[in-house]
Nucleic acid binder design. Structure first.
Lengths: 200, 200
DNA sequence: ACACAAACTGACCCATCGGTCAACTTGATA
DNA sequence: TATCAAGTTGACCGATGGGTCAGTTTGTGT
């Protein structure tokens, strides 16, 4: 019962890919205010072509975020059956920060939070984080009062703090991930002033 | 040898103050893209008046940031001779996060980093942080490998992480400040992957 | 009260941006 | 190779934003 739709043309799929790459580069350079015209020029196509592939700028952003979110969700799944629960959680945080460092989409997240596909992936990722945190907590690798929401919120912090420097070393986030993860460890933990927030 | 300049008119200084308040509110609501027209309307003046007081939007932002930066620098100075070096550093971090929570100027910082007055205040603040960190380190309140640059960069993190929630409880940052500060404590500290960055 | 400079006003200018569309190309199919 | 829908193009549109300025109002020193 599939409608007899033609397969997409070869140049079309190529242009779509070029546009996503160009958009990523432009957003990285100029932030969320990067213009559609610049993105089109960088991809070597006309502005109208952008809107043939993505109905609006929001949808283009959502397509970018969806790709990265899917990659990260998949990566998180790979840690779910790691034999060492503590290293599994740290490994996920490292993976997440590394990806954020290479493709800074933090500022695009809010712009695409309303997108249903992004929301679905986000919830799926959150589910994996819940498993990772539960196992790490049961193993005594992290303190008992840390929740999955805490980890989710803290994921971007290591990269974020480095952005106050003009030319941060590309691996500097590892330093701050180390500090923050030490703060999650049971050793020397002091009581927290506020309860963990609910998700979302 | 002072030139015989008149004192400013009463309505002028009042309008300048109204504009700063309106700008703060508009930036808080709409981010850095808040428009000059909206700011002027909120302050109850015409658009041209904005440019009489501030040569450009950048300068308006710089004036706002200068005010908050001066407040924070002054606050930091108040902790310099606190008898407990650990509590002094924690007190400063608490003050800084509290101020960031009430007046979110993080996203305006980059827009005003080039301003010489902002740079001067930033350096003065950094000097105070250096004193606070040195005393806390000597007292054994924080681990030996934490530098003033680390503290400076981490200052905004507690508030930042809460911003991924739509309606974060206003004091939620205290939870993440607790976690991050625990990560700075000597107890259970693990070696850091990267050396501390130079300032700036 | 007067005079004047400082301050205010809002219409206007120009650049930019997201998005549209009618005309034109082109890749796949038969 | 003929055909045509799918894809591309770039001029165009309306909205919006930062910034200007000639004309007007107003606070203030005399």
């Amino acid at each position: 019962m599939t409608s007899p739709t033609r397969p997409p043309r070869a140049d079309s799929v190529r242009n779509r890919e070029l546009l996503l790459q160009a958009a990523e580069a432009e957003f990285a350079e100029h932030g969320a205010e990067a213009s559609i015209a610049d993105i089109a020029a960088r991809a070597g196509v006309a502005k109208g072509t952008v809107f043939r592939h993505f109905a609006s700028k929001e949808e283009l952003i959502a397509a970018l975020v969806t790709g990265h979110m899917a990659t990260l969700t998949e990566g998180a799944a790979g840690f779910l059956d790691d034999p060492d629960p503590g290293l599994a959680l740290l490994g996920f945080l490292t993976l997440a920060a590394d990806q954020r460092q290479q493709h800074d989409v933090n500022f695009l997240l809010t712009a695409s939070a309303a997108n249903p596909e992004v929301a679905r992936l986000r919830d799926e990722l959150f589910g994996h984080i819940e498993s990772l945190v539960a196992r790490a907590r049961d193993a005594g690798a992290i303190r008992a009062d840390i929740t999955a929401t805490d980890v989710f919120l803290l994921t971007c912090a290591p990269v974020h703090v480095t952005e106050f420097l003009e030319n941060p070393p590309p691996d500097l986030w590892r330093r701050y991930l180390g500090i923050i993860f030490d703060g999650m460890r049971p050793e020397g933990a002091s009581p927290l002033a506020m309860p963990a927030p609910k998700w979302p």
